[in-house]
């Protein structure tokens, strides 16, 4: 049990950093929705964060990380004296140890957040597909898609409203809804779930198909 708590503590910074990175509502992500992958992808950043943080703590504070003690706890030493020593050490230094982790978590969250801010404000996600967030609908509805280098269209910098015409399938046939897009929501796969319109006009398509539109469109 102690070893698994330790492993969680070791991986936590990477997980928290990705929480910070994806904390804005529009950055809705589709992670490989299995928790094991999430844990595995958190290991590398965690190790890097721990290593950097350790260098700082060992060199600039009076506290030292007790690696033999960590080893005892991780590999559940069979020597009862050493286990006792480890736990009494843990209780003596409980507050510094807790502060060590809380500070590291806060730093990890901030680093993730700063990373996102740099990508967004530096327009890295617009210019480089690698940095693009999985919420493609954000780029479409915000007009940012017109600034993508691979989209051949004059970039739009100012949008007052987004007018949407939608062809909707209903039991009574196809209906065109036109309105001003106010909001949208995504499902867990980052696909559109629903759209919220105001000032809606509704027009059945069937009439046109049945003769009124001579062009037959």
């Amino acid at each position: 049990a102690v070893a698994s708590i330790l492993i969680v503590l070791i991986i936590a910074p990477g997980l928290i950093m990705s929480r910070g990175f994806f904390s804005a509502p529009f950055t809705k992500r589709i992670l490989p929705s299995n928790p094991v992958n999430e844990l595995i992808s958190a290991i590398l950043p965690s190790v890097v964060l721990h290593a950097l943080y350790l260098v700082i703590v060992q060199n600039w504070t009076d506290y030292q990380v007790d690696f033999p003690l960590l080893g005892n706890l991780l590999f559940s030493s069979s020597n009862p004296d050493r286990i006792k020593e480890s736990f009494s050490n843990l209780s003596t230094f409980f507050v510094p140890i807790a502060i060590y982790h809380i500070v590291l978590w806060a730093v990890a969250y901030l680093l993730g957040l700063i990373g996102r801010v740099i990508i967004r404000f530096g327009s890295l996600d617009i210019n480089l597909a690698y940095f693009r967030f999985n919420n493609k609908w954000h780029y479409i509805f915000s007009g940012e898609i017109t600034r993508f280098p691979d989209v051949q269209r004059p970039p739009i910098t100012r949008i007052d409203m987004r007018v949407v015409d939608m062809l909707v399938d209903t039991a009574d046939g196809s209906i065109i809804y036109s309105g001003i897009l106010q909001d949208y929501s995504l499902n867990n796969n980052a696909e559109l779930d629903s759209l919220t319109l105001s000032h809606v006009f509704r027009r059945p398509l069937t009439e046109e198909v049945n003769g009124k539109n001579d062009a037959g469109e």
Binding site: F141, I156, I159, L167, L181, L192, S194, T196, F201, R202
Partner: peptide
């Protein structure tokens, strides 16, 4: 016909296609 003053929520599963205009 017009549906005044209301917000309309349309489930995307019913949508066949979307035509989007950016208005400035």
């Amino acid at each position: 016909y017009k549906v005044p003053g209301a917000l309309m929520v349309i489930p995307y599963s019913k949508v066949v296609n979307i035509n989007l205009h950016y208005a400035a």
